[in-house]
Each structure stands twice: as structure tokens, then as C-alpha cells.
Design a protein around this nucleic acid. Structure first.
Lengths: 188, 188
DNA sequence: CTGAAACATTGACCTAGGTCAAAATCGGAC
DNA sequence: GTCCGATTTTGACCTAGGTCAATGTTTCAG
């Protein structure tokens, strides 16, 4: 599991061998069942995750009581409820497991110890932030310019894995449409 | 002008006096007239701006030919067409001046020279990225959960400066509604 | 295997906000 | 000042996608 994480880290930044030695002292394994909550709205997000197998997602619940999925983390990805993790402020989001999952988690103290331990780790953090920013930017552009159908088609082209992995309910909430609408889009 | 910038930088990160000495070798002053374009869609964003006086904004044009304002930079703020600046890829955004403005600009080479010059500068960059991320996150939440009217009222409470500074046309495009709708909201 | 709960589909209807067009107002160049 | 183009407002109308409710279909605990 740690080796998969190292693979991903090295893909993001060219770490020196030494910098990744002893990584297991910072990341601890965790197994979660499908449906299990890792973070509740109102709690402070303490951990950052590597998804080795399975799938996590972050979502919040709007005034009308509907789930809104913000981010899906399939296997071989990293992430967290970032805003809360960064500022150590209560999260308005939930984090749950969409499947039985194997994770590695690192808490904030360890995370910042790593980030401050070398230039490569700082660059790693910068890289993640840049990617997260670009992702959100794309999301805003899509939400404000594309119709429901166009968003669905775009996801189908760009990220077919999500289409097959997610239930219609979650997929709809990720596309920011109602389940009924998604159902109609797929048949129409 | 440089002193205002130093004030802002010190507000974001506690720089040492020495780190900010000679800042004028990196930032060059620039004056722009109202309406002037600083970046066109398709161009690569080379500069990062400090707005000393006036107002900049970033926007793009959707398929229907309507402007969509992403970010407004009133005076005493910093920013850029970030995605393009970071990745040095062609921007889909424009940057223009909403008023006659006095700017300090730093190009990407100088920017990264600074970022790599010390830990404080790295932290500065991280700070900006974290803020930009949080801002986009908030934006997505608002766009997906609030009605047009609610978004307008929220902006009026949280950022009244923008309401008075921006024309209805720009304000509407920032709120992601049509100008006609904004006009109706304001009277209704 | 079976039954309850969660999920997905379908239909009838509604509404926020967009569109289009025309009038009213503003603001800067001369 | 005054004229022209750009904004803003108002009105009539339209539509994408939401809502609500009924009916199938999975799924998984026991």
C-alpha cells in the first residue's frame, strides 16, 4: 500500500529516495466499509487521505436537504475536505466511503511536518494546491456555461470511470442536477 | 506604491525586512485606462498584479457571447489569470481594467525567483493558493445552493464595495445572472 | 430465499430565470 | 451644452430543469 502511495507521490514530484523513506511513520492504514462516514459536517477535518482501493467522496447537504457531491476520490488518488483541513475550521462538508475502501491517512501535524521538511515536500503541497485550484476553476466554468446534458456528456467523455462507479444518485448530485433529471438525460 | 504592496505582503506573511528590500527590481509599475485589456483569451498570462488604485477583473465569454466575470480585484489586492499564469497555458479568460488603474506587475520568472528565494516567499505563495482555493470553493457552494436573489443579497452584505463599484452589467455577470434579472432583483 | 428499504424511472405540472424587443436613462467626446 | 452609443429598465413570453407522486427495480440483512 505504501508503495502505491510512493508511486503516486513520485508521479507528482520527483522525490529523492531518502525523502520517502520512513513514510509509514506518517501515514497509517485505515479500512472503511461502504457508507461509513469519515467526517461529519461541523467537525474539523484532521486527516488527509490516500485512497489505495475503493472510493471516497466529499459532499454537503443544502437547505432543501439534498446532497451535493463536491469531489470523488477513486482509487490511486489523494484528497480531503481541504478547506477545513487547511484552516482547521469546522467543515460544512461530509466525507464518506462509496465503497469498502483501503486508505492511508496522515494527520495535519504530520502533514505539515512533511511539508516543512524539504523543498520537494513544499513543492508537493504547492502542486496539490495548484491542481485543486485548477479543478475548482474548471468546475465553475462548467457549472456556469454548460447545460445539464452537456455536463453529463462531458463527464462521460473525460471521466467514464466515474459514470460506471457512481450510483445515479451520487452522479446526479455531482453534476448538480436532480436524480430524476439524470434519469431522463440518460434515456433521452 | 511599493510601500502599499509591502504593507499587503506583510499582512499576508510576516516577512523579514531584508526579504522585501529591493522589491522594486521585481515589480514594475503600470498604468492602464478604463476598459483596457491586460490579457486576451488565447494568450498566455505572463504577469501577476498588485492593484494599487483602480480595479481589474477577469472574465470569459461563453458560447452565447455573454461575459462571465470570475474575479474582481479592487484596489489593495493582488491577483491574475491564475490558471494560465501557473501552467503557462493559453488563458480562456480576459483581464481588463474596470477603472483607470495603477498597478505593479511581476512576471512569472521574477515571481518564481522570489518564491524560491526563501521559505517566507514559499509560504506566501502557498497562502495565496490556499486563499484562491477557498474562494473558489465558496463560489461553487453559493452558485449551487443559492438563488439569484440570495446571491445578490449575500454580496450586498459581505462585499458592498463591489455593489457600488461595479456596473450592473459586470455585477450581473459576476453573480452569474442576466442584467435584466439583476435589474428586476434590485427593484423587486 | 424473502421482505423492507433504498434506489431508479416515468409522468404531470410548476417556476426561476433566460430571451427578445422596445423604451428610458446615462455619460463621455466633441 | 448636445448627440451618440452604451447601459438600464420594463414588459411579454419561453424553457430547462425542479418538484411531487406513483410505480418499478435492486440490494442486502436476516
Amino acid at each position: 500500500m505504501i508503495d502505491n502511495l510512493k508511486l503516486l507521490l513520485n508521479y507528482l514530484i520527483n522525490f529523492d529516495e531518502a525523502e520517502l523513506a520512513g513514510l509509514e511513520r506518517f501515514f497509517s492504514p485505515k479500512t472503511v466499509k461502504k457508507g461509513q462516514l469519515l467526517l461529519r459536517s461541523g467537525e474539523v477535518c484532521r486527516d488527509f487521505y490516500f485512497v489505495n482501493k475503493g472510493c471516497l467522496r466529499t459532499y454537503f447537504i443544502d437547505k432543501a436537504g439534498h446532497e451535493k457531491t463536491r469531489l470523488v476520490l477513486p482509487d490511486f488518488t489523494i484528497g480531503s475536505s481541504f478547506t477545513s483541513f487547511i484552516h482547521q475550521a469546522p467543515s460544512f462538508e461530509f466525507v464518506d466511503a462509496l465503497e469498502d475502501s483501503e486508505l492511508l491517512q496522515i494527520n495535519r501535524t504530520h502533514f505539515y511536518t512533511l511539508v516543512n521538511s524539504s523543498d520537494h515536500w513544499k513543492s508537493f503541497y504547492i502542486r496539490i494546491l495548484e491542481m485543486a485550484y485548477a479543478f475548482q476553476n474548471k468546475r465553475i466554468e462548467e457549472l456556469t456555461t454548460l447545460s445539464a446534458k452537456q455536463r453529463y456528456e462531458k463527464l462521460r467523455l473525460e471521466n467514464p470511470i466515474l459514470i460506471q462507479k457512481l450510483s445515479n444518485k451520487v452522479l446526479a448530485s455531482y453534476l448538480d442536477i436532480r436524480e430524476e433529471t439524470l434519469s431522463r438525460l440518460k434515456s433521452g
